[in-house]
């Protein structure tokens, strides 16, 4: 187990190094001078020189990268071309909004997908099973932002139950937070639920065909006992991975939904940084999301190895 953890840690470190290189090179891909492009009509020589020096753009490329890496390791991701504030602080400020949306969406997805996936597998071929399969096909094909727009039309425009957009912090007013998070979380959560439903169904079907399940049934155990004691435990192990990967991708992948619902998270920050050509903020947001993505994957692999020891020897 220890060797497995060390190997995965080293692999993740190498990939993270590659991620920093890609994020660093993004700035080099900007046609022309990124500082001049970012300043646009607000150009003045003093600000220009100060920002160039602060971003280290007057140094050779290799020096710039190692300097970027050294500073990133100490949590310094540079300063915003627009506001002059530290990028790390700007990005971290947006994390709670994204986190609250992602976690709510995943919880909603689990509430829908776990019972649906289980019933669909146990009653394979039934009406519920067909409905679950239609639902999962719908979920993987529908653009979430379209569903969001239709949600705004129905629940805000027609019924007037929920606000069309905006954000209230959970710590400020839990009730208003819930009314604001409901639409974006359900929009994102339905897509996640459809993916999980299909995965839980196939995982359950695989375990249901195992010999030990047949043995348990042959012993005369009731279906409920067989499912809860023998099938669920084993079938849900791989689901842990999918849930975590979904959560990780939601942390950085809900740009469109955050823009649509004016949700001030990392996605919205990325969008604003692109619009304002604030490249250090864009780099910081992308780096943080990729690092979080890697971290979650690493933790899941370790957790998975704990739950299923066969993994470490594969």
């Amino acid at each position: 187990m220890a060797r497995f953890v060390i190997r995965r840690l080293l692999q993740s470190a190498v990939v993270l190094l590659g991620v920093t290189l890609v994020v660093f090179l993004l700035l080099q891909l900007v046609p022309g001078d990124p500082v001049r492009v970012a300043l646009g009509t607000r150009f003045d020589p003093q600000t220009y020189e100060a920002l160039r020096a602060r971003a280290g753009l007057d140094q050779p490329l290799a020096v710039q990268y190692f300097d970027y890496l050294r500073r990133a390791l100490t949590g310094d991701l540079g300063v915003s071309f627009r506001s002059g504030r530290p990028v790390t602080a700007i990005v971290l400020e947006r994390l709670p909004a994204t986190l609250s949306l992602a976690v709510t969406a995943v919880v909603f997805a689990l509430v829908v997908a776990v019972p649906l996936g289980i019933v669909s597998a146990i009653r394979s071929g039934s009406l519920v099973d067909h409905a679950a399969r239609v639902f999962s096909q719908f979920g993987v094909s529908v653009p979430d932002f379209w569903m969001g727009i239709m949600g705004i039309l129905l629940f805000s425009g027609v019924l007037g139950w929920l606000p069309p957009s905006g954000y209230v912090a959970l710590t400020d007013d839990p009730g208003r937070w819930a009314s604001h998070v409901a639409l974006p979380a359900v929009t994102v959560g339905l897509v996640t639920a459809s993916i999980l439903t299909r995965f839980i169904r196939s995982s359950m079907l695989e375990v249901l065909s195992e010999d030990y399940v047949r043995t348990a049934e042959a012993k005369g155990l009731r279906t409920r006992v067989v499912v809860s004691r023998h099938v669920l435990r084993n079938a849900l192990i791989p689901v842990v991975t999918v849930v975590a990967v979904q959560l990780a991708s939601l942390l950085g992948g809900v740009i469109v939904i955050e823009v649509l619902f004016a949700w001030p998270g990392i996605g919205r920050l990325t969008y604003d940084a692109v619009a304002a050509r604030d490249y250090p903020v864009l780099q910081g947001a992308v780096l943080l999301v990729a690092a979080l993505f890697l971290l979650v994957n690493l933790l899941v692999d370790i957790l998975y190895a704990r739950l299923d020891p066969r993994i470490t020897v594969r």
Binding site: G18, V19, V22, P31, G253, I255, A273, F293
Partner: peptide, 24 residues
């Protein structure tokens, strides 16, 4: 394959947005 792992470390849309943002 390690290069591919690096590209896999980014959520799809985020990386696409970042690339389009810098290329125009």
């Amino acid at each position: 394959m390690r290069c591919m792992d690096v590209l896999f470390a980014f959520p799809v849309l985020l990386l696409a947005v970042a690339i389009v943002a810098v290329l125009g």
